[in-house]
Write a protein that binds this DNA or RNA. Sequence first.
DNA 1: AACAAATGAGCAATCGTTTTCCTGAAAGGA
DNA 2: TCCTTTCAGGAAAACGATTGCTCATTTGTT
Lengths: 341, 341
Amino acid sequence: MRVTTDADSPPAGRARLADVARLAGVSVGTASKALSGNGRMRPETRQRVLDAVETLGFRPNHHARTLHTGRSWTVGLVTTDGIGRFSTPVLLGAEDALGEGRISVLLCDTRGDAIREQHHLRNLMDRRVDGIIVTGRRTDPRSPLRGVEPIPTVYALSPSTDPEDMSVVSDDGNGVTLAIEHLLATGRTRIAHITGPAHHAAARDRARFTVELLAASGLEPATGRVHFGEWSEAWGRRAVEALLRTAPDTDALFCGNDQIARGAADALREKGVNVPGRVSIVGWDNWDTMALACRPPLTTIDGNLAEVGRRAALRLLDAIASRPEPGVRAVSCRLVVRESS
Amino acid sequence: MRVTTDADSPPAGRARLADVARLAGVSVGTASKALSGNGRMRPETRQRVLDAVETLGFRPNHHARTLHTGRSWTVGLVTTDGIGRFSTPVLLGAEDALGEGRISVLLCDTRGDAIREQHHLRNLMDRRVDGIIVTGRRTDPRSPLRGVEPIPTVYALSPSTDPEDMSVVSDDGNGVTLAIEHLLATGRTRIAHITGPAHHAAARDRARFTVELLAASGLEPATGRVHFGEWSEAWGRRAVEALLRTAPDTDALFCGNDQIARGAADALREKGVNVPGRVSIVGWDNWDTMALACRPPLTTIDGNLAEVGRRAALRLLDAIASRPEPGVRAVSCRLVVRESS
DNA sequence: AACAAATGAGCAATCGTTTTCCTGAAAGGA
DNA sequence: TCCTTTCAGGAAAACGATTGCTCATTTGTT
């Protein structure tokens, strides 16, 4: 209930377009046109409206506008489980790119729960979001969202299993290439690959690319096989200990993530093996708290996750402007050379 | 432009309340009342409406509702710089508590830029958010938001400098008490405190509480003073090396965060000093990748950051329901005992 | 049986913009 | 001078729900 003492008194609360119009001596419609730049009008009229906007501190009501135009200038950001180390940069990259487009982000954390996901999706549809970005912490493909048909959706980091959907991922093949070529270029040939659990796509893919790429140079992994394990420092240490026994002539370690790499570096140092003198190490993720704290600081592959988020947002904006381009796009990785190689 | 072939045909696109009403054979107003439970009506009438809702898959338009009622069921979550290790759990805790209240979260990352902050605030006001939660990555008090007067605001993690604002923080004093009492209870008396830079409130406050609490037991820090430095492992290592020279009889380290603690643990191990045999270590943050990967796993103080977020959200909900309770509330910490003590 | 009270349901105003007509008036051309 | 364009600006209909008010019916009371 807006309180006004009489018809022409200054309005209580926030100024409405009607107040602006009255002050400028024009109709509401004209005021609207003056602001949107749609209708034609005398420059001085427009200026009067603009001045009135200034004096009253008028800001248009977002919901009224959305109600009429159907565009909410909002996108839903659905994170599959928690907001972790991987989804955070994606999320920030997306928020950044969307902010440029004056679009706001509704955050939905599903905690990996399908019920909660459906719940959030209905909410997003009720709020008439212009689009949805889905991101998870793993690179394993995920099943597409259900029941959001008319709303453009982009999958970031974890691609959709449906190739007709839009997905943006980090290019693991490219990352492997950067790492292996760097090691070969610095004269290493007996390269071991230590990585995470085989049931993670990230581990499997990187391992496969590694083996293929080594084979292309007539090489094979130092121990003849890839070492799957966990994404932990402890696994890195254990793997190195085994490695020093089985293949003591190994001259480089390519690790599936920075934690494994750091564990490996620690184990080597404690065994008196010089890094990078006798063994080079390359990690993956460029996770600063690991890579920089490592002794020596880690050479590592940066998945450019913020860029993945940015690109996902840009594709979403394209799709919203109805230029749908389905398919998976991969963002190149970056090799960050530090002292471990 | 909604396309209908004739007045009574099923509507294209999403169902509106008008469609529900027509199907149920009642007026729009009655249908609305049937759903909100506000008006009185014959049970069978209500049921007809409910059935129609079901058949049409009707979901109310959020913006239309907000436009009329003024409540958007949305809160803005403003993070001061990035979304880091500290703001993430706060954010998740808040999102969780707000989700219970069927409220959505608009994410605003200011990147520490005042211009961007103002920009986001105006946006939030345009969207008529019901409330705002402000969070940062430091515990240093921050200046209150400007120009959001009528909107309830809660500061999480970094309190507002204005005591009349609502703030929720982690209780550093309590954390220090837990840590020191644990060390004393396990027989340690020559306790050193190694922490971050003195220009961080987190470092200063924890140091002050530590000195006070030791004094209360007739003790003083092992070296007679607190060691300020950085929040890094490297500083932890350096500090320990200095400590072993100046005060070799030190029997416990209380570190300002887990990174320092981990660095300290590494340095001690490498000097052949047994942990926890000869020296106990307690860290702060319970940051799993540090605390669990540490050798030995770290005893540490958990700031319960998710709970800080939850409590901030709950206070905000209270304030929205117009029960304003200004002031700073502190969330207790938790001592997580592992093998380093 | 007659009148008052309670109840069920509809009408229409409202929220604040956008946008589509539509109307005068001014300007231009013959 | 008269007729056709162009132009400025207004009136009003959306957009989709909520809610106060009104008006018939029932129901209840002597």
